[in-house]
Nucleic acid binder design. Structure first.
Lengths: 193, 193
DNA sequence: ATTATAACGTACCGATCAGTATGTTATAAT
DNA sequence: ATTATAACATACTGATCGGTACGTTATAAT
């Protein structure tokens, strides 16, 4: 009975995610969005609501896929420590290879919006807490298997890894010498023993 | 021969620093600035140049005073480990007590501007590298005095403390439970032995 | 007292912002 | 084939953006 949508909502949302991720909320204009999403302004509003609602949808898409990525990434390796090593080294390599240097969409949002918008404070916090749980479960798997010491403070350690992950992601935005980051990763991994 | 300035440049710059620190570059308007600095628009341009030059001056003022604060803060305590503990605990307490939740101006800038503006990439990197040097010198003082193990990787440890400091500052923007941060501080301090 | 100079306040500039009114077009149900 | 519906493209809204032109005022040197 009605005219069907001509664009793929999921692809459009993905495009919005990419540009918000790269430029942040304030620096991204509606014109930027229509250009990259390949659709007109009213289509954005009818499909996603206003700019902030679109941003929220994009962030939710990001955290969902990022959580899944982290989870499977750590499950890939039978050794917990090697799993974490591969995870960190991969992240560092990715950030140094590519051009844009976008970091993590969730962390960017934590800095830009969370202090001024409770909705994003909650959203970003919940993602980091979820990562912390994944890390803790992974560490406990290592304890269970005997790979890691039984007296490890698994919760505190997982929380510290979240903190370190954020710190590494952010400092890489200033492009420090690669050795700076590599050294830090090594010291952080030394906590897993 | 000329009419003298009626406002205190240093106070005006300080006001600009406060608001840029709180809201970031993009979200701060010229109207915000004239309001908080207590001067008119043309006065800003004649005294500080355009918005980005003013921002740069404000950031330089911040990094200068922050460096001095960190340096003296760590010198206050004769025990290196207790010095770091006091430093971290103070930072956490400050961030949780106050309302605004501004974090660190330099870190905010690293996230917002460094990936898109080489000048700020350099500026923010240099500040973090400077902090790393302060931390390393402090750790080496502890090694020298016998408080810390002689086989510590002082450089890597200092770099890791920078990374942790950034991570803690950023995650506090999402207001995690206090215990999350406290636990992380404890684990990080455990590296100093 | 006159004059040169720059800081001052006001009021403006074109550009761009987020968001929308409107008329047209395409589709599915009848 | 007709009709109801919503997606579409165009073009617009008022507001606000960063930045500046300009006329006035206050000061210091003469």
């Amino acid at each position: 009975m009605v005219r069907p949508r001509e664009f793929d909502e999921e692809k459009a949302l993905d495009a919005a995610m990419q540009i918000f991720w790269e430029k942040g909320f304030e620096a991204t204009s509606l014109s930027d969005l229509t250009l990259r999403m390949g659709i007109q302004r009213p289509s954005i509003y009818s499909a996603f609501g206003d700019k902030k609602e679109l941003f929220e949808a994009a962030l939710r898409k990001y955290t969902r896929s990022h959580s899944a990525y982290v989870r499977t990434s750590l499950q890939n390796n039978s050794s917990v420590k090697e799993g974490f090593r591969a995870f960190f080294e991969n992240m560092v390599a990715n950030e140094y290879e590519k051009g844009p240097n976008r970091g993590c969409f969730c962390i960017n949002t934590m800095v830009e919006l969370s202090p001024h918008d409770e909705k994003f404070e909650v959203l970003t916090r919940e993602h980091e807490m979820y990562l912390s749980v994944i890390f803790q479960e992974t560490i406990e798997r290592g304890v269970q298997s005997g790979e890691l010491d039984a007296d490890l403070n698994t919760k505190g350690l997982a929380q510290t890894i979240v903190v370190s992950l954020i710190g590494l992601t952010v400092i890489m935005k200033s492009r420090p010498e690669r050795s700076f980051v590599d050294n830090s990763v090594e010291v952080i991994l030394s906590l897993l023993k």
